[in-house]
Structures are given as C-alpha cells and as structure tokens.
Design a protein around this nucleic acid. Sequence first.
DNA 1: CGATTTCTCTGACTAGAGTCAGAGAATGCA
DNA 2: TGCATTCTCTGACTCTAGTCAGAGAAATCG
Lengths: 302, 302
Amino acid sequence: MHSAQIDQVRRFNRTVTQRVGVLHDHYLGRDRPIGEARLLWEIGGQGEDVRRLRERLGLDSGYVSRLLRSLEADGLVTVEPHPRDRRVRTVRLTDAGRAERATLDARSDELAGSLLEPLNEAQRARLVAAMAEVDRLLTAGTVTLDTVDPGHPDALYCLRSYFTELQERFETGFDPERSLLPDAGELTPPRGEFLVARLHGEPVGCAGLKLPPGAPAEIKRMWVAPRARRLGLGRRFLIELEARAARHGRTLLRLDTNKALTAAIGLYHSCGFQEVPAFNDEPYAHHWFEKRVTAPPAALQE
Amino acid sequence: MHSAQIDQVRRFNRTVTQRVGVLHDHYLGRDRPIGEARLLWEIGGQGEDVRRLRERLGLDSGYVSRLLRSLEADGLVTVEPHPRDRRVRTVRLTDAGRAERATLDARSDELAGSLLEPLNEAQRARLVAAMAEVDRLLTAGTVTLDTVDPGHPDALYCLRSYFTELQERFETGFDPERSLLPDAGELTPPRGEFLVARLHGEPVGCAGLKLPPGAPAEIKRMWVAPRARRLGLGRRFLIELEARAARHGRTLLRLDTNKALTAAIGLYHSCGFQEVPAFNDEPYAHHWFEKRVTAPPAALQE
DNA sequence: CGATTTCTCTGACTAGAGTCAGAGAATGCA
DNA sequence: TGCATTCTCTGACTCTAGTCAGAGAAATCG
C-alpha cells in the first residue's frame, strides 16, 4: 500500500464526509432526529418485528422501544403483538407514517440531486460511474468468506439458489439427481471444505472443495448471488480454494463447467486454469479445467 | 438527471457513510471526543488564533472555549494572548499535543489503510482512481463563480498569481508593463466583467471579459490555481463568459494566448474556438482564437 | 408443571455536541 | 475621552443518542 494511495483515500474521506454530511443534515435532519428517521425508514411498507429492527440497526432494545413510543405519539406507527408469538411486537406504518417516509425518500433524492446538480452532463456521467466503482469496491471489501458445514442454513440457501439458477440457464434444464454432485460429506473435513461468502451477514455465494484421497482436488458448486456479482468474488473464491488445496498438499486443482456459464469460463481462463480433456462423465459438463497449485510464498500472502 | 443516476448516488452515499462512518468512530473516536480531536487537528503545528479556529470549524465561541479548557487541562495546548491584540488569544500545541496530533494522523492513515486492506493490488488501484475522480468532481461542484470588482482582494490575489505564473512559464519571461493588458476599468461594468472562482471561500481562479463598444468581446486574464486544476473550471469559465457576452448582445468572442500555455490552447480548441490570424499586436501572444456565440436556448441553460 | 428463556418495556443515567445570554477586558472610532 | 465594537469566557440550558438494570408477560424446554 503506497502512501500516495493512503493520501488519496484520506482526501476522499474528507471531501465526501464533509460534502455528504452537510447535505445529509440539511435535507434529512430537518424535522426529525435521525435516529427516528432511520427507524421509520427501516420499518418499510410491510411492517416489521421490533426484534428484527433492533437487529438490523444494531440498537439497544430500550432505545428502540423509546423511539417507537415517540413515533407512536406522533401517529406515524402502530405497534401490536405478533399473532403467533405474543411476546414479539410488530410495527406498522400508519398513513401518516407512510407519508413521512415518502418525504424522507424524496429528501434523499434531493440530496443526491444536489450533488449532481452543479455538474454538466459529461461530469455527471463520470461522477456516477466513479461512485459506482467506489461503491462496488468498498462493498467487495466487506464480503467475508467463512468455512461452514454444507448443512448450515446459509449454505442451503446458496445451494438452492445455485440449483435454481442452473435449471434456468442450462439449455437442457438441470436435475440434481442426474448430476455427479458430491454428497455433503465430501465437502466437510477431512474429505473437503465448503465456503460461504457473506455480505452484512447475509449469504451471497458459496464454493466447495473436494479433496478425494489420492486424487486431484476439485472445485464444486461455486455460485455468486446476482446482487454480489462484479465484486471479484469468484476470483476470491478461486484464490482461497487454491490456497486451501495447496495447504492440504494437493498440487492439482480441477473443475468442470457447463457451456452456458460463460462468465465463469472466462474467470477460469483469466485465473490461470487450462482447459483439458474430460476427466469425468458429468452429464452437464462441456468444459473441464485444471491448474497446478503451490502454496504461495509467504511474501505474497499478505 | 436520470433516476438511475440518483439511485446510484444514493447507493454510494449509503455505502460510504456506513463504511467510513463505522471506521471513523472505531479509529478516531477512540479516546477523545471528536469535537476535541477536530479542534486539536485544526490548531496545526504553528498555533492558531481562537477566532480563526472558530471560523474554520463554524463553532460557537462558548463551545470552542470549553473545548480549549478541556484540551488545556489535559496538557495538550497552551492559550496565550496575541501579542498585538490582547483580546485575541492564540492556541499552541504543547509537545504532548503534538504527539496526540501525530497519533490522530496515524489513525487516519490506519482508517484509510483498512479500506484498502481487504482488496488485491488491482482492486486497490481501481478504488483509489475512482475515489480521486469522485473527490475531484464533488469538489468541482462546490466551486462558485462570482462577479467581483477587479480591485477586490481575491481578484488581486488571483491576478498576482497569474502574473507570477506567466513570468515562470513564458520563455521570455513576462513584464506586465509591456503587455496590452486592460486596465481595471475595462473589466468592470459596463465596459466588461470580472469573475473569481472560489472553493470553500478561497479564491482559486479568475477570468475577465472585455466588452469594447462596437468590437468583439474579448477574454482576458483567465487563470486557475494549480490546486483547482482538473476540475473543469477553465471550461466553466469559458461557458459562463460566452453566455455573458451573448447576454450583452455580442456575437463574437476573441482571445489571444502564449504558446507556452498548451493546456489552455487545448481547452480553447475543445470548446469550439477557431484559431484565426492575429487581431492585435500583443507582444506575448502566439495564437489568436475566436468563436461565434449565441444565447443558448432556454432548454439548455438549466 | 415448573424452570428457563425470549422479548419488550420502563426508569434512571451518561456523554457528546451544541446554543444562548451575558460579563469583562481590550481596542477602535468619532 | 467616551461610546461602540470585538473577542473570549462562564454559567445555565437543551437535545440526541445512547447504555444499563431490571420487571413482567409469553413461550419453550425438560
């Protein structure tokens, strides 16, 4: 990390927090404390359980309760017990609450507009593009890769999404029964590993590593949620799995894929995988890849 | 302004304020309230008058006084009367204060580093580049163009800087006496106009428009401070002056320039100026430009 | 069925970040 | 010289944004 990079990041932080901060106070902190405004926003159109609000905003239960009393006193929300579990209480916006939320929304738009407003067309386009890039990369930096059991709810969510997507994208559809998929035991230590990527705690991708004794390691079930694409997550999975395979003493890593998954095929090429003849008879595979892996020298691990 | 742009800006605001905000609290709000930290930072290595601190941070005088008492009690600053005006008090960092400021500085670096840390080399480079672009364009959006009298201190500052720069950049040096410079009266209404660009209230550029009766309008003394370059300010000056010339009923706008000012020459070309034969005998000019101007249709003025 | 846990709420506090209204000293201006 | 102004400081407040320690109701577990 160069100090010129650090300096630029600091300049960015200063400019953005100043500019956005001032406007934020001006547009959004107008007639309601921002704690209340945030809560009002999070309740959403459908209503929400108090405990989930607390969780999402990371606030103390007493504090949330007090904020809700205040919103209730202003006639913006109603709080009633949850029908199935009467300990839990559900918050719902009243019509007045919905109107208030709509003005908050409009103010957010105004705030955004006021950043673009002084610029000409070309500058606006460049600013928005650069913001998208910053947004993407900062988000990418918060995605965590965790080893989990393939039976974990987050893993199951990813696998189900993965299968659904394969069914939609494969010309022939996809039937898990017909595929040479590993059973769960093959993706838990010592026979393998399973990784889940999470963004703000929500699962947004998975990848499995098979470590069959006496055979090359193999990547299975790699998937990235649509909303987490373009964050370099596929590449991160591959690098992580390569390192793990190497740590288990494997020198060859393999995978197979379907011709419909063009982005994945591009990724494999760009990550140094070589296309090779079929090494299995997976019915849904059209391409087979392999890569020699070695434990990276310590200096590059960082 | 498209709603897709607005949405992207809002997403950016959310991501950045969250990510940077959390880290900000973690790194900088550690052992000192951020009000004190900001003040400590603004005092700087040289010491500073209380009134200027107040001005720069936009704080209440009572509040600043209390913050200073607190910093003083911690042995971080000393406050003593200004030698020439004993109403004013000057704050100076003690050695302990300087040390504290250095740790704040280090923490800012850490904060910046922690944004880059989870990314790989290529991603870091892209993030930093995108941040620089956002920084530049947000800054550009806060630059104001104001009509001022050429005798105003900000105007004089710009003109002096302009002449100094010409002296350095012209092969032959530059002597204002030899040049066909307009006198100040030619740049005040009704014979002309003079604009100063300001960033956070500080002058960062100027441009003059001569409106000689019965002759084409002419641009003179256009200058942008080094720290405000690459913000599209030159183009903004030209557009603004074109509009003003048109509003005064002129249809032709002229200017001359020196061959050393290559960036300016590029700008004139790209803004639609055509190079023409010399229309004056300004000794320092090598290129002469003109452009037909018309009042822009209302739809484009926005 | 009783003990434990979960969920929400209330009351009592705290710290930070300011605001506002003078008071007192020094300086500037007519 | 005297009056107004400038500058800083103090005291007395306010509002946000929390935290912490229970209490009471409902649900769950063994």
